[in-house]
Amino acid sequence: MKITKDQLLVNGKRNDGRSPDDLRSFKVTAGVLKKAKGSAMVEWGKNKVLVGIYGPGEVFPKHLTNYTKALVNVRYSMAPFCGAEEHGRSGPNRRAIEIGKVAKHVFENIILTRDFPRTQIDIYIEILQSDGGTRVAGITAASVALADAGIPCKDLVQGVSAGKVNDTVLVDLDKWEDNLGEGDCPVVVSLRSNEILLFQLDEVWTKQQVLQGFEKIFNAAKVLRQVQEESLKENYKEG
């Protein structure tokens, strides 16, 4: 079903019935892949995102080896069939390379990289179905996958996007709100350090709107964190 701009926010309700602060349904399952050291699958609204962790292993190419810490590598890739529109191209495009870079910075922050000098940790994010907010879904899943891999991290991190429709700040944009709305601001937070680890912004925002977005994102992160923790506990339940 095609949504138009004037259907995005009607009487305080969004096109899928949510209010501005509501998240879409969010589910994460840890340990879904056999070969990867750690893995997780996120189903968030219509998004389906799979993350696999390899390493710590040998650095490739070798000359990049850091003798004081592990290198972190993130590959974000959208499957050619992930969108409801035309067939996509395989492999990372320019957008995906940029997302891989900023996602890498998140994990350089939270992984205890100094525990694994001369190694590389690979995080592979595969977007199987996309419906807005795939980078934050991928990073939220990757944090669970890292825990599943047993790689020591300072915190579980959560990503949420904020946006705007008719100057009302919304969280967790779906595809229509992302494409037709007045802004997209994906953010990844660590609740433990109370810090923003990823921040990007497009379209036009005032400072107050950005700050409102941050507040809503931090609140949403608390909800996501609970689900992340439960899924990990579920995975390691005895018996």
């Binding site: 870079k101 910075h105 922050n109 990823l198 921040f199 497009d202 700050l211 941050f214 931090f218």
Partner: peptide, 23 residues
């Protein structure tokens, strides 16, 4: 009074207070 692009890069984290003052 309006921002039209933002980007964070590098491993450091930033608090909301820091973001506020940088804006």
């Amino acid at each position: 009074s309006h921002f039209c692009a933002g980007q964070k890069s590098g491993s450091a984290g930033f608090t909301v207070k820091e973001m506020d003052s940088m804006m």
